[in-house]
């Protein structure tokens, strides 16, 4: 499709972001969680994965799922600058997503962490992977973070001892901004960030299948129609 001039003007100037090398983590039940980066053209699939959760009020899933959906749509349709998306998959099935973007070389902006399969600390692993991307891959100095649920607040703000910076505006708006600085990352990385590289070829191939979840424990009775 040809891109007309107006559309070209509406699209952000993208900065090249270094790729996130896939890794895998052995979860408590022995399953392998593969954390890998998705491309823009895979965003619609990720959107389908979170869509059913947009109606789940418990644990603020509705807010988080709706916002992730919108953020990915904005990225897919070229309305957000420098966004990225990491997925967690088990046996190829999408079990969680994290996204964010960079403001500039030094500063990153964390968007959301959404866990589709609960009870295995997948969200904690994905959040850590996202911070690993900002600090260890992109070499940034700090990441701005907000929380929308008490669980998120407890997990990120308190466990990582984030620095409150209420005067600094996060583009998700609302609650005050907290910041993970490089010093705090160095302090907590070892306890929080785990996983192995490279991912064996076979595991990586399975992971790249990106299968949508058939059901969600958060939505009793839900069955994805085939």
């Amino acid at each position: 499709m040809a891109i007309d001039k107006t559309e070209q003007m509406l699209r952000p100037q993208e900065s090249p972001l270094a790729p996130y090398e896939a890794k895998y983590i052995t979860l408590a039940n022995g399953q392998k969680l593969v954390v890998h980066q998705l491309k823009r053209e895979q965003a619609p699939l990720a959107m389908e994965a979170v869509k059913p959760l947009m109606t789940v009020e418990a644990d603020f899933y509705d807010i988080v799922a709706s916002r992730v959906y919108a953020e990915l749509l904005g990225w897919y349709r070229y309305r957000v600058k420098d966004e990225y998306l990491l997925a967690g998959t088990i046996d190829g099935v999408i079990v969680g997503l994290v996204n964010g973007r960079t403001i500039d070389d030094k500063v990153g902006l964390s968007y959301h962490t959404i866990t589709l399969r609960q009870g295995l600390r997948i969200g904690a692993q994905l959040f850590a992977a996202k911070m690993e991307y900002h600090f260890d891959v992109l070499g940034q100095e700090e990441v701005w973070i907000v929380a929308e649920s008490p669980n998120g607040f407890k997990r990120w703000m308190i466990e990582y001892e984030l620095e409150p910076r209420p005067e600094q505006w996060h583009e998700l708006g609302g609650v005050p901004t907290y910041v993970l600085t490089r010093a705090l990352w160095e302090k907590h990385r070892q306890a929080k960030c785990t996983g192995r590289r490279p991912v064996p070829q076979e595991l990586l191939e399975t992971a790249s299948q990106l299968i949508l979840p058939e059901s969600y424990a958060q939505i009793p009775g839900y069955q994805r129609s085939v």
Binding site: A28, N29, A128
Partner: peptide, 29 residues
């Protein structure tokens, strides 16, 4: 809970501190 933990994963694997973190040392999740 309808999930069976893997003995190696929760007690010996190199990822154990992240997937089965301490709650009150030496007790884990």
């Amino acid at each position: 809970i309808r999930l069976v933990p893997d003995l190696h994963a929760i007690s010996e694997d190199e990822d154990k501190d992240a997937v089965n973190p301490y709650v009150a040392e030496p007790l884990r999740l």
